[in-house]
Computed example of a mutant assay.
Amino acid sequence: MTQQGAALQNYNNELVKCIEDLCIKRDELNKQIRLEEEEKVKLQNEIRLLTEKLARINENLARKMASRNEFDKTIAETEAAYMKILESSQTLLNVLKKEAGNLTKATDTKSSVTKES
């Protein structure tokens, strides 16, 4: 019977030791879980901040692109109007030269008629 009691005591000691080992492993696992949950919260916060920053950048880009498009439109319209002014100036210069030539011919013709008389 003492042998059986000793065996029972050994089994009990081993059982207690196994339970203690399991508790230690569970505590280590709980610590790892807590650390990873903290990391998860940190990463989620960083993602939220980066998402907000990305949204702000996208809004700024959209505004700047719209402004650039307005600049492009204004420049194109201004260049087109300027080309029309240049064409009109050239046309006016050609008409003026032609009229000046006609006036010179008319004046020269009158001068020659007056001299011949």
Rank of each mutant, 00 (worst) to 15 (best):
K73A: 08
K17Q: 15
A66K: 03
M1Y: 13
Q4V: 07
V113W: 07
G101L: 04
C18I: 15
R68Y: 04
Q32T: 10
R48L: 10
K115Y: 13
A55T: 09
E39L: 06
A80S: 12
S111R: 11
E99C: 01
A100C: 14
E37F: 00
A6S: 04
N69L: 08
T107S: 15
L96D: 06
K42T: 08
S112H: 12
A7W: 01
L22P: 00
N12K: 14
S89Q: 09
V113D: 03
E20L: 08
L92K: 12
S67G: 04
V16P: 00
A62S: 13
A66R: 03
Q4L: 08
K115D: 07
L29I: 07
N60P: 00
L29T: 05
E52Q: 11
K17W: 01
D108P: 00
R68N: 07
R68Q: 05
R26T: 02
I85N: 14
N30S: 08
N30I: 02
I85H: 11
L35Q: 07
I47H: 03
L93C: 08
T104F: 13
A62D: 08
L8G: 07
K73E: 11
I57F: 10
E20I: 05
K31S: 13
T74G: 06
I85G: 01
E20Y: 02
R68T: 05
I47G: 03
R56M: 10
N94C: 11
E14D: 08
I19R: 09
S111V: 13
T74I: 08
K115E: 11
E99T: 12
A55S: 10
K105T: 13
K98E: 04
F71E: 10
C18M: 13
I75G: 01
Q9P: 00
K105Y: 04
L92R: 10
K98A: 08
D21T: 11
L35N: 04
M65E: 14
Q32G: 00
L93S: 15
K25M: 02
T78C: 08
N94S: 11
E38N: 12
M83E: 15
N10G: 03
N30M: 09
A76Q: 02
K25C: 03
L50A: 14
T74Y: 04
E52M: 12
E28S: 09
I24W: 00
K97F: 06
E20F: 12
E77S: 12
K40P: 00
E28W: 04
E70L: 04
C18R: 15
I75A: 06
E38H: 05
N13F: 13
K25Q: 10
A76N: 12
K42W: 03
R26K: 02
V95M: 06
S88C: 10
N102W: 11
N102R: 05
S89I: 03
R48K: 14
S117R: 14
S112T: 10
S111E: 12
G5A: 14
N10P: 00
V16S: 01
R63C: 02
N94I: 07
M83N: 15
A7D: 07
K40T: 06
L61R: 07
K25I: 02
E39H: 05
E36H: 04
T109F: 14
T2L: 06
T91G: 01
S111A: 15
T114G: 06
K98P: 00
T109D: 03
S117Q: 09
K97L: 13
T51P: 00
